[in-house]
């Protein structure tokens, strides 16, 4: 299995495979909205999302750009395994605040972290296995074991996995595209390589 693409969204930059795709001094929601517009993504549903889902949607858009292999696979065999530290805390607090006047159904639907997987699946019509885990830090061992198991049992042909966290307008995402066949530009899907890519720093 190989990591055929990787995206980092952190510290005011969006990086794909070590190339800076977007950089800005803006932060949080302003940063991700500006990136959405700069990258000319045409997906009006984006504006309705919470910050976690917006970050995931932009990250996956960059991850899958010009990646024909992913589009060719059956929806049932495309899946996601994501994780973070703070679950959906930003949306939880927003909903709580809004509820003092009127509870907002549109805010309520984002009060679970796995909704980011749902939003991405709606956009790309993924129907394969998915899971969202909450842990203190990026657990490369667990992600590697879980994704490997899904792919070795042929439940998935391709998988987007990694870390996506939002707290107090600070975005931290590192997503990997994992595929079974060796690719010319691919990196072996190992715990060491997951950690190495995750720990790279492209900040200001």
């Amino acid at each position: 299995m190989h990591i055929t693409a990787a995206v980092i969204v952190r510290d005011g930059v969006i990086v794909k495979d070590e190339a800076v795709i977007y950089r800005s001094s803006e932060e949080g929601g302003t940063f991700i909205k500006a990136a959405y517009e700069e990258l000319e993504m045409d997906y009006p549903r984006f504006y309705k999302m919470d910050l976690l889902s917006k970050t995931g949607t932009v990250a996956v858009d960059v991850l899958l750009r010009d990646h024909a292999g992913f589009e060719a696979c059956r929806p049932e065999t495309a899946g996601m395994v994501l994780s973070n530290r703070n679950a959906s805390i930003e949306a939880d607090v927003q909903y709580l605040e809004a509820s003092k006047a009127y509870p907002s159904p549109a805010l309520f639907v984002y009060t679970l972290p796995n909704i980011v997987i749902g939003e991405i699946s709606i956009r790309y019509r993924f129907k394969g296995e998915n899971a969202f885990f909450v842990s203190d830090a990026f657990d490369a061992d667990w992600i590697h074991w879980y994704v490997t198991d899904l792919m070795q049992r042929n439940l998935l042909k391709v998988c987007i996995c990694g870390w996506i966290d939002v707290l107090e307008e600070q975005l931290d995402a590192c997503l990997f595209l994992v595929e079974p066949a060796p690719a010319q530009t691919g990196t072996a899907f190992t715990v060491e390589n997951l950690c190495s890519i995750y720990n790279k720093n492209y900040g200001k």
Binding site: P44, Y102, P103, P105, A106
Partner: peptide
């Protein structure tokens, strides 16, 4: 306009609010 079921709930809230 392409609204969905969650939007319908928001419209109900809007009428009330």
């Amino acid at each position: 306009l392409g609204l969905d079921s969650i939007d319908a709930l928001e419209l109900i809230v809007l009428l009330q609010q």
